[in-house]
Design a protein around this nucleic acid. Structure first.
Lengths: 240, 240
DNA sequence: TTGACATACTAACACTGTTAGTACATTCTC
DNA sequence: GAGAATGTACTAACAGTGTTAGTATGTCAA
């Protein structure tokens, strides 16, 4: 059940998290008040279900059965909220720590990151350098740098490799076409739209590619791993 | 002279573009009314000088000596405005068409794109797949695909290569640290802040890298071209 | 001159993030 | 236990946002 605008049902039912705010006198239970963690999780859920533009203080408050102003007891402001959401999302990325070869470790990490960005489609667009200081993000950065330095990269070379890898990662997620999500019929429809938007005569190559994708589905997983392999191979080569 | 908030001086002086709106009766001159092009250019200037968050309808109107509502005669809405700004910025990217080797062509294009993103720091953050349908963007996409197909890539391989390259391009610009912009003193200051934010004991590798950059400046141009070379070499290898 | 059209205007709408001040419940201190 | 202190959520309001409806004004073509 998705509740994306302020429906009455949202106020009549328990929250998604299952924690009821009603002031039941049965004490000893975990506090029925808000906290930073619950606010951030609710914001992430809201963004996942309804899009990042639906994450407003009032809507978030509605979900938590609280007025918007109350949220400021637990977060510093909207910037803090968004930063916390990113940090929470990044914490879901898996960095294997068992003894696999560094290249395989980083490949798995990248694929895990891509899955996280697929789950939280708003995340990639929110990331920039200043977000890397959250507690989860820092731990994540540290682990990846550890893998690279352990593989023989110097500290600065490791940072460089990390930057290159994540640039690709975030950039891919930002601009990847949404086409492949829809089914075949709609895909050809989109391609036809693209073709319709192309003035006669011009854009021969773009048209050729559009036709290509109107006929054959675009495998974005394969496209991603193709580029990922390119970069990892290059990093390995730069190491020797 | 930067005028970023609604100062009175903005209304007393001619606009940056040098076009005076005053209703001078000397006719036959180019119309003194607005048009889409002038609105978009003013928005780009405003974003360059004051940041993308300063681009509001009212502020943009103030710059053009017009009320906000009047802008809607020339653009469909804010989405259209932002899309047009991105299209305008992308049109500044250079794609050499003379007979140089495809790899060199794409390298030059990437470097040109990075310079454009440095000029228009807001642009990379605004780009996503749906923005590629503007007239300038389409022409740009077409030229790049033409280079790749001309080099021997199949249409789908060319699209894939294009996606990988631009993912890196946009991603790098999004997350590149601002540190290197400030001078040496401030840089070490920033590094010290990072170190201060790191809890004792944890994050050994991140700390090591931070120290590294507190001592030696970070050459982001070199970092960018390192990753670019990696990808281009990989693409060439995938071709043969 | 008249009519059509494009443009810019005023005024208002429903939103947004955010703050000040108040009421209430819990928890700590004596 | 009584009283103080703290934390939480509330109401009400602020300035700012994008956007629309309706109105005036100017510029062209017939």
């Amino acid at each position: 059940m998705l509740v994306c605008q302020g429906d009455v049902v949202a106020a009549a039912l328990p929250t998604t998290g299952g924690v009821i705010i009603a002031h039941s006198k049965s004490s000893k239970e975990p506090r029925d008040t808000l906290n930073r963690e619950r606010v951030l999780r609710a914001a992430v859920d809201l963004a996942d279900e309804c899009g990042i533009e639906s994450v407003t203080m009032r809507e978030l408050g509605r979900r938590l059965e609280v007025k918007a102003a109350s949220l400021y007891n637990h977060i510093a402001g909207k910037d803090d909220l968004l930063g916390g959401m990113v940090d929470l999302a990044l914490s879901e990325i898996d960095v294997p720590t068992d003894g696999v070869f560094w290249k395989e470790t980083l490949r798995r990490r990248a694929i895990s990151a891509r899955q996280v960005f697929a789950r939280h489609r708003w995340a990639a667009g929110l990331i920039d350098s200043r977000d890397r200081t959250g507690p989860n993000s820092l731990a994540y950065v540290d682990r990846v740098l550890g893998v690279l330095i352990g593989a023989g990269f110097s500290p600065s070379a490791a940072a460089n490799a990390f930057l290159v890898l994540d640039s690709y990662l975030y950039g891919f997620e930002r601009q990847r076409p949404d086409v492949s999500i829809e089914d075949g019929l709609e895909r050809t429809e989109v391609a036809r739209e693209i073709l319709a938007a192309i003035p006669d005569g011009g854009y021969r190559y773009a048209a050729r590619v559009a036709i290509e994708y109107a006929e054959n589905p675009f495998d974005q997983e394969a496209a991603f791993e193709f580029g990922l392999g390119l970069i990892l191979d290059g990093l390995e080569r730069s190491l020797g």
